[in-house]
């Protein structure tokens, strides 16, 4: 663990954002053009990265968006394109079993898009001494992008794994990747490239 701090990522934490429900079945809805066509394929690329991160001693933090069945905690979230989603404790909202979450992993429920908004993430990252965050999950253009923006504004080094995130549409996914790269140049990487980097840092 100690040598890791000398690499460009310092001490990273892996944030697995909103990988919920069935990730094996395509869920593309042509009527709404939502989410992007390859959503399930991109999500299925995450578990090998989690395995490598675990082996490298990188803490894994699972983020799960939840909303109360009474809908009182949606705020403005139903005033745009999104419909009712992520009702807490509903079977379709469980973290995908393929992610292999373990009891020792960190687990945070959130009621907004950013993983920092109204959650204990700041406290966990501080306690872990994390100076960088690796982001995977969905949607690229919503929860990932806005978690990235908050991490960036807190001075954390960010990496978005471009083939382990998927968006509300292909166009929005691409635009969000561009926006994040513009905010923090060098922050977009591929999964296998990141795996090599993590192995090299060890």
């Amino acid at each position: 663990m100690s040598t890791r701090e000398s690499g460009p990522l310092g001490k990273p934490a892996l944030l697995v954002i909103d990988v919920q429900g069935d990730i094996k079945t395509p869920r593309y809805d042509p009527a709404r053009h939502f989410p992007m066509l390859q959503f399930h394929e991109y999500m299925q690329r995450i578990p090998p990265l989690i395995t490598v991160a675990r082996a490298s001693g990188i803490p894994i933090i699972f983020l799960q968006e939840v909303h109360h069945p009474s809908l009182i905690d949606f705020g403005r979230e139903l005033d745009g394109f999104e419909r009712i989603h992520c009702i807490e404790d509903s079977p379709g909202n469980a973290i995908a079993p393929e992610m292999g979450r373990r009891p020792e992993d960190f687990y945070i429920r959130k009621r907004r898009y950013s993983a920092f908004f109204g959650t204990e993430l700041d406290i966990y990252l501080k306690g872990l001494g994390a100076r960088s965050v690796l982001l995977v999950g969905g949607f690229t253009d919503v929860c990932v992008h806005y978690t990235f923006a908050d991490a960036h504004q807190r001075g954390l080094v960010c990496r978005v794994v471009k083939d382990c995130v998927a968006g509300s549409s292909r166009e929005a996914h691409d635009a969000a990747l561009q926006a994040m790269e513009s905010l923090q140049p060098g922050s977009i990487c591929g999964r296998d490239e990141l795996i090599c980097e993590l192995a090299g840092q060890q």
């Binding site: 403005r76 005033d79 745009g80 394109f81 999104e82 253009d141 919503v142 992008h145 509300s168 166009e171 929005a172 635009a175 969000a176 561009q178 926006a179």
Partner: peptide, 9 residues
């Protein structure tokens, strides 16, 4: 892209 993202919300 930024305007579309805001309109999405």
């Amino acid at each position: 892209g930024a305007l579309k993202a805001m309109e999405y919300l």
